[in-house]
């Protein structure tokens, strides 16, 4: 099993993300995974809200 390099968090962008890079025994990149560790669930909690509320709520998905 080779080495794992974690870049956590990735920075200078909105939101949370991390990158895991797996190296093989020769030190080359075997595989690379990009993960989004965050979820807030806007898709669900806008349900039941007045329609005119939605633009003001979803503007908080990303304030950047």
């Amino acid at each position: 099993m080779g080495k794992k390099i974690s870049i956590d968090p990735i920075t200078r962008l909105e939101g949370h993300g991390k990158i895991n890079i797996f190296l093989n025994d020769e030190g080359g990149v075997e595989n690379c995974y990009f993960q989004i560790p965050e979820l807030r669930g806007f898709e669900k909690f806008v349900e039941g809200r007045p329609a005119e509320e939605v633009p003001q709520i979803v503007s908080r998905i990303c304030g950047v």
């Binding site: 979820l39 807030r40 669930g41 898709e43 669900k44 909690f45 349900e47 039941g48 809200r49 709520i57 908080r60």
Partner: peptide
């Protein structure tokens, strides 16, 4: 994000 406390965890995951 606290508006999610009006919903259930599993319902949020299912929706998304």
């Amino acid at each position: 994000p606290g508006l999610a406390n009006f919903k259930q965890r599993l319902d949020i995951l299912n929706k998304v």
